[in-house]
Design a protein around this nucleic acid. Structure first.
Lengths: 324, 324
DNA sequence: CTGAAAGCGCTTACAG
DNA sequence: CTGAAAGCGCTTACAG
């Protein structure tokens, strides 16, 4: 069995209380005692049991993260940055992939509460779930409005949708299609869509929106577009993966990009910029989103009163590359 | 404060012992009592504290995962699958991004031990670290030979390197460059390199290998290749990101792919297949790697004796697309 | 079928 | 400067 504080105490010839004091640098301890204890800890390779510590303090320094899927480069990068920031602040990360399934979100949330996490960062699509959570559990949401008391961190989706659409129009596109996820959810993509619509209408162009539902394969929808709108000359995709899928289908249809059709995506992950550097896109500040979310969460954990319902909208960046 | 088992006991008019029995379905309990207890739990919204449970049982059902970086699509997908398999087996995942830094690997390992994880999955590059771990801690490594007692799960890197190189040769390439990570480490890429060398030599061709060190930017190295070998007509990259970077540079040099230069990558993640579907690559069975690793780890956790040092090599798949 | 007691490994008032 | 005691929230022999 692993050595415990008793073993250290015995080895050092002191009481467990004293060992604990040395461990936590608390109260007065003679230099001699301190050294004896350190030596004993080294000798028996003692590593304190955080479970016991957490049980006493009612504080685990664990944060739960619920994302749809770290396979998606946006969430993979977000997860990386969040874990990194956590680590630098002394927190650890319990990772949950909800796959956008409400039943999994619910189960994970209960699991996290059972594990006494200090707080939760959620990228979640289902409003209901987190409301049912214990009111005392600090939660920060990324990109989704979940309830009146849960702060939201995200980037400027309206501005992003606006910039993307304006760029296409400015480049001369007339038949501009927008592809987007399900409309009924309080998703960040909804604002991108709204901006697209507003800009199109303002420019006397018809908005054309294709949508697909949560775990639906968008491939057939993309194929259908070319049938419905053979003269399509612009595409604003609500994420880079969709943009890539569209480009691929466009090539199959014998269309040249950007000559025949101009394409702009959304997210601008590192991975996209490596695998598909020619794609024009709206880049989200992924690190800043993660950092802000953790900062707000830690403030809540520490009971620092911030305005109950708050929103943090970070700026996006238009990245123009070869596809426009 | 959250309700505890005492609160439930009081609300139900029984002892904590009885509540615990109901909770764990252990021993005989009258149906009436059981219902009283369930009712009380519902009423006060009781969720058992896993910390206390774990402290008693010396079992947390938490697994630690150390990967370099979930931003990389290979590790993002691996992490997803591992977390998923964990969840299905009742385990939770504590995520660590080591960024290939030995100091972070060391710190994370101590953290995981302090948190009493039941086991660790490590994708780690530094042999030393895990040896120093407590001998009792079950560890399974992915893709890296760390010590004689740590099982390794990975895919057939030699076969992958062989297939890739043979494909290029069969397609008529003569000046085939291989780009790879640092040589001195026991990395999976080393076998890919070895296969490349063997196949090249067997075909009377000169192996040309460029390597870069752990956190070095490969971009300048890629640029240099074209200067050193203007007649390069084949590229076997040790991962898809490098392949994409090479393709990009090739285009900048006015080369056509696959007409002038044929390119094959390695990994074959979902993300690559979406963003760069034309890339030929060696596809690793990412899900199977994760699943096998967890299965082995859980066996060790449960004390099922398997051969101390064992190796699990899963088959790769050659995916031929447009770049060859 | 049910409960009182001891203990998992730690920490912190409280004494001395 | 140091230690004995009680407690964090749970579980499990041991009695009854």
């Amino acid at each position: 069995m692993n050595p415990n504080i008793q073993d250290v105490a015995k080895a050092a010839g002191v009481s467990p209380t004293t060992v604990s004091r040395v461990l936590n640098n608390r109260g007065y301890i003679s230099e001699q005692t301190r050294e004896k204890v350190y030596k004993a800890m080294k000798e028996i390779q003692y590593i304190p049991n955080d479970l016991a510590r957490s049980l006493f303090h009612k504080r685990t320094y664990i944060i739960g993260l619920i994302v749809p899927n770290t396979s998606n480069p946006f969430f993979g990068e977000l997860t990386f940055h969040i874990e990194n920031v956590c680590e630098s602040l002394g927190y650890k990360l319990l990772l949950c992939n909800s796959q956008n399934r409400i039943d999994k979100e619910q189960k994970y949330l209960e699991m996290l509460i059972g594990n006494q996490v200090d707080g939760v960062i959620a990228v979640t699509y289902n409003r209901g779930v987190l409301n049912s959570a214990k009111k005392e559990l600090p939660i920060v949401s990324i990109d989704h409005y979940l309830s009146d008391t849960i702060p939201v961190v995200g980037s400027d989706n309206y501005e992003g949708g606006k910039s993307a659409t304006e760029l296409l129009i400015q480049k001369g596109c007339k038949t501009i299609i927008h592809i987007n996820g399900p409309k009924d959810l309080r998703t960040p993509a909804a604002l991108r869509r709204k901006a697209y619509e507003d800009v199109m209408i303002k420019n006397m162009l018809d908005p054309i929106i294709y949508e697909f539902s949560t775990n639906e394969d968008p491939a057939p929808i993309v194929r259908r577009m070319f049938w419905d709108y053979p003269d399509v000359d612009g595409m604003f995709a609500s994420d880079d993966l969709l943009a890539a899928m569209f480009m691929n289908e466009a090539k199959r249809q014998g269309k040249q990009i950007p000559e025949d059709i101009k394409v702009i995506g959304y997210d601008g992950t590192e991975t996209t910029s490596k695998l598909l550097p020619e794609l024009s896109t709206i880049k989200q500040p992924i690190y800043e989103i993660g950092k802000t979310a953790i900062d707000r969460l830690v403030k809540r954990i520490n009971g620092e009163t911030d305005n109950l319902s708050s929103e943090f909208i970070l700026p996006i960046e238009l990245i123009e590359n070869g596809t426009t």
